[in-house]
Design a protein around this nucleic acid. Structure first.
Ligand code: MG
Ligand code: MG
Lengths: 251, 251
DNA sequence: CGCTAAGTCGAGAAG
DNA sequence: CTTCTCGGCTTAGCG
């Protein structure tokens, strides 16, 4: 599991270590210690000398963690080039990327630990409660939104974006349904309003707009009503597990 | 720098290790090895047994990294309770949080390495190119948006959100300015439209809306023009470093 | 490549 | 607490 480990390596050893283990792209590398970090790209940043943990995964992604905080201080999701060298007696790591053009540079002033881990076994990961799941369930059971509703299309792409569910109501009117897995905000109302306007402009006469979400903020509800749109309280989760004897709506 | 390190610890040792070093909340802890991870909260997830790197920072934040990807597979930004115990012969880590109610559970099936690092020295971090900086510069030099513009307010909170810059033009008309540090999208147009509508509804008669950004998507520009709003190409960066002899507009 | 929208978004500010 | 906005957002999906 531990492929290699160095304690307080000198600049040359660390540079060699990084070059060696990044080349193979088959292990997770970490370096902890005092360092300086700069970034130039879509924005620019500088971190004074401090204690950081640098992590390089085998896909070439780089993240630099400060002692606190869930998010890395600096990062690079994909690197086109990753190299280590010795400059002015310090090991320096360059991680660059084109499109967008970005460069992260780490100067290791006092590395305490360098670690290469074999971290290989990838396993299946499943997530429940996404908007996609909500959409699947409601496409199968549109009556949960409103009795008599028929789904015509999903993820329907129009000029102004993508309509989650495009449907027809019991009276034959077109219905644009926007889904949110969490509390709906004014942004969601804006989205729905845009879609309804686009569909109306396309020639459809009476278009209803329904925002389906587990809850909605007070200002969003006010704005929604002012615009003549509707809200339906629908959770992202299957309500209660139906008795096995009865067919579940979420089968 | 390395406070403690265990190789292939048994369940009891790992549990003790985690309990000991999380209690002090003064070091960064990692455990690498085979594990199962489940999460229940705003959503829910399950990860089959695989190789993961678990990291707990001294602020109690938890992240569980898969072998690839910039983002952790599971995480907890703040934990209200963090505990380790032995269940069915395996060390299990529970990280829970109230508001929102969330629980991450890691079952270590075969831990290869446990590490506690002193990672203390926090250092200053500065970022350039944010919208905030852009706002500062344009508040000082509104003529960069348009000659004759006077800024009346910044971050002006109204019902529908916050107006980045509220200004008056040379003809005395009110102007709502929405800033974007990157390419402006339809979302930004919606925002600007909402703010302009709200200001108009508040009684101001002629209200202009200006979207200031380094660039704008084609559909957003079309929608913007259809709504009678305006676009100004303004970079988030000070243009070119002015000759030292001349006073820079971004001083 | 550009564009749009989701996210367990996270983090922060303001009321 | 709620609500909203920004972010080097990242990421996925589609044209
Ligand atoms: Mg949608
Ligand atoms: Mg704004």
């Amino acid at each position: 599991m531990i492929r290699a480990q160095l304690l307080t390596p000198d600049a040359g050893s660390l540079s060699t270590f990084l070059t060696t283990h990044t080349r193979t792209r088959d292990c997770l590398i970490q370096v902890a210690g005092l360092a300086e970090v700069t970034y130039h790209g879509r924005a620019a940043s500088t971190a004074e000398v401090g204690a950081y943990l640098v992590m390089i995964k085998r896909d070439g992604s780089l993240q630099i963690h400060a002692p606190t905080g869930i998010k890395p201080m600096n990062w690079q999701p994909r690197t086109d080039e990753l190299s280590a060298c010795v400059e002015h007696g310090h090991c320096v790591l360059h991680a660059s990327r084109r499109s967008p053009e970005e460069l992260v540079r780490v100067t290791f002033l006092h590395p305490h630990l360098a670690l290469a881990l074999d971290l290989y076994e990838e396993a299946s990961f499943t997530l429940s409660g996404s908007e996609k799941q909500m959409q699947d369930a409601l496409a199968r059971h549109p009556e949960l939104i409103e009795p008599g509703l028929t789904v015509l299309d999903r993820e329907l792409l129009i000029d102004s974006g993508g309509i989650d569910l495009y449907a027809r109501d019991a009276q034959g009117r077109s219905v644009v349904v926007e889904l949110k897995r969490g509390r709906a905000t004014q942004d969601a109302v804006s989205q729905l309003g845009r879609y309804v306007a686009t569909v109306q402009k396309s020639g459809v006469h009476t278009v209803r707009g329904i925002l389906a979400a587990p809850s909605i903020t007070a200002p969003a509800l006010k704005e929604l009503r002012a615009r003549g749109l509707e809200f339906r309280e629908i959770g992202a989760w299957p309500e209660a597990p139906a008795p096995a004897a009865l067919p579940s709506l979420f089968d």
